[in-house]
Amino acid sequence: MRRRRKKKRRGESEVTLNLAAMLDMAFQLLTFFILTFRPSPVEGDVMLRLPPPMPTVVSEKAEEAGSNEKNTSLVQGMNTLTITVLGSPNGSIHQIMFGSDTPIAGLGALDAKLRATFGDPNVAIDQVILQVGSLLSYDQLMQVIDVCTRQKLPSGDRLSKLSLVEAPQ
């Protein structure tokens, strides 16, 4: 298409917009956004379903476990496992107990023990109660939770049912 050029008529004044005011306002907006800009940190989530702590031994389940002659493990037949993690005054891990009386050397050993436990298809555990010492720091607690949530249940699902309870002094 041919463009038609408008001929300037002689004597007609050119209309020019004064952009300076708009530019001032735009710069003010820009300054506001730059000053209030705070990029949000990339944070990870550990998603948990935290039911309130329930008694570890349900009487019917315990009877079931006791009636099974092949069951030599204390935790078998019960659907809850208790792990006790005590902290030292500086917040680090002082002691880990698996079940009621098995001391664990560290997080690596805990991981191995949990793997062995959940690798047994006869184990019906689907919930872990973490009995945590009052001094343990959140950082160390998250390391323990990390080890727990990495475990796969015999059903194939990841362990996500945890309960936190404060260990008695």
């Binding site: 935290l50 039911p51 309130p52 902290g87 917040g91 945590v132 010492g133 009052s134 001094l135 343990l136 720091s137 959140y138 950082d139 607690l141 998250m142 936190l164 309870v165 404060e166």
Partner: peptide
């Protein structure tokens, strides 16, 4: 905060529960 003792954290979490 990563240095928060469990006692203080649990106060909030158990209240939520």
């Amino acid at each position: 905060d990563k240095e928060t003792p469990f006692k203080l954290l649990n106060r909030v979490v158990s209240s939520c529960q």
